[in-house]
Amino acid sequence: MSTLDTIPKTKQESLVEVLLRLGDDRLIHGHRLSEWAGHGPELEEDLALANVALDMIGHASSLYSYAAKLEGKQDEDHYAYFRDDIDFKNIAMLELPRVDFAFTIAKQFLFSAFSYFLYRDLIDTVEDEQFNGMLQKHFKEIKYHLRHSREWVLRLGDGTEESKKRIQSAFNDLWMYTGELFDQDDTEKAAISHNLYVDVTSFKEEWMKLVKETLEEATLDVPDNDQYMFSGARGGRHTEHLGHLLAEMQFLRRSYPDAEWK
């Protein structure tokens, strides 16, 4: 949704909007994770990161497919390859460059924890059968992502001096992007009125508790909440990183749009 778009009015418009928000988060996150393939800290972790990336891109693909069906677009690729950065609705944290393993793990943990509570509540709320079916299937995988990233936060936090320094600085750097997770806009309010979304602020405390407990167990400091918080990415106000990510992701498909690439 760019700043030029209007708030969805009909139930279907709301549904498409929600599908794209969830889909964009997952595509962009999966894309960044996929950059690790062949460069992981150990073979086993290379496999693990690729599994999460595959889950994420797979989730995005099925969410987009459903949106394409509703909107009469050709297929899921329309949303991934033929929209510009101001149209993408993902939160900004996910588009940040991968930096190092600690940064990836911290981001993975914060986002998985958020997804965990979001999907848990969405499953109880969403009446649309096809959408709910996807949520249930994806929820199982999200639980594993949370477990995997949480275990790594503990190991890096309570590991060596170097690992602690790295993961602490990752959380410090990421913190200003966590505010956005719980920004509720009119689009979400409209979706809530159609039972297609939930009030994210309702689980903010649970999320904070999980994050706090994990960081404390990992002997890490919880960054200060009283700081500048980035906002607006869901409405198209992204960081500069997304444009570069999309330039790479979309170039081939856009260079030859009439060719068959599936």
């Binding site: 150990e42 086993e44 496999l47 693990a48 477990r147 995997h148 275990e151």
Partner: peptide, 20 residues
Amino acid sequence: SVHAPDAEMALQNARDTYAR
């Protein structure tokens, strides 16, 4: 087989390697 630092990670690595 897998390499892992401890039992929990061994289980996770087993899952990520042998349940693809």
